[in-house]
């Protein structure tokens, strides 16, 4: 096992976990969204890391270059980034609405006075 070869991944994992931690431990709705983004970006980095080929270049065909990095994860991550931003936009939209309805964006301050009034 090549510890050095995996070091890159470990850093990414630490990042992921920071994001994940923000998501589940914080009560502020915007902060949760940021955490979610950190989490996702870290996952993207993870994907991109795996696509790297030592000595390779960006996967744009050119004369005289033999080794390219793996383009497939790039494509996947392009898609995933878009999905991520879409999610963020929606989440923030919801946050704005929640703030309108409740006057707060702290999860534990959103309390319902009446029970089961639906």
């Amino acid at each position: 096992m090549d510890v050095l070869g995996l070091f890159n991944y470990w850093i990414v994992i630490v990042l992921m976990m920071i994001g994940f931690y923000i998501v589940i431990s914080h009560g502020n709705l915007v902060k949760k969204v940021v955490g979610l983004n950190v989490f996702q970006v870290s996952v993207f980095v993870f994907f991109i890391s795996m696509s790297k080929v030592r000595g390779g270049t960006a996967p744009i065909l050119e004369e005289g270059i033999e080794v390219y990095s793996n383009p497939l994860p790039h494509v996947l991550i392009l898609t995933a980034i878009v999905v991520g931003v879409a999610t963020t936009a929606l989440a923030l939209g919801l946050v704005v609405r929640i703030r309108d309805a409740y006057g707060t964006i702290e999860a534990d301050e959103i309390i319902e006075p009446e029970e089961d009034g639906a």
Partner: peptide, 17 residues
């Protein structure tokens, strides 16, 4: 109900995770 908003938000967070 306005609780639909928080419900959707929670779903969103959990769903995205």
């Amino acid at each position: 109900d306005r609780r639909a908003l928080t419900a959707a938000y929670n779903y969103l967070v959990m769903g995205t995770v």
